[in-house]
Amino acid sequence: MKTKTNNTADTLILLALRLITYAIVLVIGYILFDIVKNGASALNWQFVSSFPRRSGAAGGIFPAIVGTLYLVVGTIAVSLPLGIGGAIYLAEYADQGRFNTTIRLAIVTLAGVPSIVFGLFGLGIFVLFCGFGPSILAGSLTLACMVLPTIIVASEESLRAVPKGFRDASLALGATKWEMIRTNILPYSLSGMITGSILGIGRAAGETAPILLTVAAFFLPRLPKSIFDQVMALPYHLYILATQHPEADRIRPMQYGTALILLLLVLGLSLGAILIRTHFRKKFRW
């Protein structure tokens, strides 16, 4: 009899767990559905290809798309070499010394710094101290600092996936450490490092707080001429349209359209990275 009650209770608990899990799935599904459904009706070629008018109440969001892409490229250009280089050091050179511990502590700390604090930091150092002003350069550098830990962690994981035997064989043939890395580690881990990093950078593309203080322009219906120019950016543009705009209640389609484009950009980057990774995982098997 005891087992019987136990079984009923077990079944109920299992059911409850499943319900909670799928409730979360449903909520996520609804968020995506809401943004996609409302955003899709606002989307058209003119919306993504033309300049905004009336403070963004009309026209398109072309400069914001371009601005975000510039920021993504700038962030990649700074953070990828630095992050991959750091990961190579940690995976291939560092032993359990104090220097290594310090670096790991720094990475963990950096990963926990709130994005708005990165914004303050970027404002203090890049915008004011370095004198870059609010610019693509200052924004990219700020975002790069923010994604650095993600890139290092992803890259290190990819490096550690390369079998130890390759390293031994390479060194035993008389390769120097760097030759070993260049010829026998990087070719097999680079794709993993880059895709892992893009996942992190995709998230940075959707961040608002760090660019709020370092780069984003409220309304700037032209394209930047240099890295010292300010740009509009999708996340900030959405924030402005949704909360700061005098006509906020009447331009819902504009807002949804912007949200959808931003979502597509971020998820697209992530999805692309995941697909590339699967492709390369199939290519290199050992």
Binding site: G85, I125, C145
Partner: peptide, 25 residues
């Protein structure tokens, strides 16, 4: 090796700079 040590030190440097510049401002 030197270059990679430099890249790895960047995280430490950034953390220090964050504290430094926040306190500076």
């Amino acid at each position: 090796r030197l270059l990679l040590v430099g890249a790895a030190s960047a995280s430490v440097l950034i953390v220090c700079l964050i504290f430094l510049f926040l306190f500076k401002e």
